[in-house]
Design a protein around this nucleic acid. Structure first.
Lengths: 144, 144
DNA sequence: TAAAAATGGTGGCAACTGCCACCATTTCAA
DNA sequence: TTGAAATGGTGGCAGTTGCCACCATTTTTA
């Protein structure tokens, strides 16, 4: 008997948890957890960001980013440079070691989507991507 | 500046986290966390299940379900009846208190989907639901 | 300009989850 | 039928996340 998913809430939970398991396994060899990998990814995409900018781009709580950034600095994947213009903030940049794992992470993240959509047509896959983005953006709207 | 979602991986993370925050807030008044609410939901849907059946229906690790069921039993939301046919298992049923929160949980879970799809047309919403289910089912396929 | 508010960041706590080792029981196979 | 494998469940540990209280700094405002 197959336990087919019946509710969107459950589907989203399953997709989230499975893709994080895949990313964890894919990045374990590089010494990175899934959450750390995502931060490296966004950091390499933008070259340099403050913690607050990372927080907004990933829409995670700022304390979560603080902890992840600390771990990544300890692991030598990024550097915090104090910002002379605003002493409250750091400029955060990937190190050489960070750049080295960037291609792997990009590939793993794209692989997750490919894997969960392998039974979709090209058209369905594009539509799924569009609707996911629309839903996520709607979620981020300020409350009224 | 709006930080629009660009990758499906990120979209799924955001949708998962936001919907769990919504469900947590919606169920806090009933003395339930989001994970507990989902177990009550599936239990009331099927009237009686073993832990293993809950595990399969939610595709969560069995130890996660064990912990949640323990908490729910302590909270008086469900009962474990030892199963005479197989002494390894319990039959788990909602109590009266469990049944009382069922309608609220159902409403909250449906509200999550309505909320994230509020900018979609009816057609898009149906298609999104279908594609989510397809992706989640694909994810659950045995590896080959 | 001084007080108040906003911003960026940190640390603690709790909830959720996955993985693993383990136990008891049941099922399967030699 | 007995030993091995599978099944259902538990407990510990670690990773991810959100919320809150708090601090330092910057910006706003009265």
């Amino acid at each position: 008997m197959s336990y087919t998913t019946d509710s969107p809430f459950k589907s989203i939970s399953i997709l989230y948890r499975k893709s994080h398991i895949w990313l964890s396994n894919g990045c374990a060899g590089a010494g990175l957890t899934a959450a750390q990998a995502v931060v490296i990814l966004i950091l390499c995409d933008f070259r340099a960001l403050t913690q607050d900018e990372i927080t907004k781009r990933l829409s995670l709580d700022k304390s979560v980013i603080a902890k992840t950034v600390t771990k990544l600095e300890e692991g030598g994947f990024l550097l915090r440079e104090p910002n002379p213009r605003d002493k409250r903030t750091y400029q955060i940049r990937p190190t050489e070691k960070g750049w080295q794992v960037y291609p792997l992470i990009k590939q793993e993240v794209e692989g997750c989507f490919a894997r969960m959509t392998q039974r979709m047509s090209e058209t369905e896959r594009a539509e799924f991507r569009r609707l996911l983005a629309l839903a996520a953006d709607t979620t981020l709207e300020p409350e009224e």
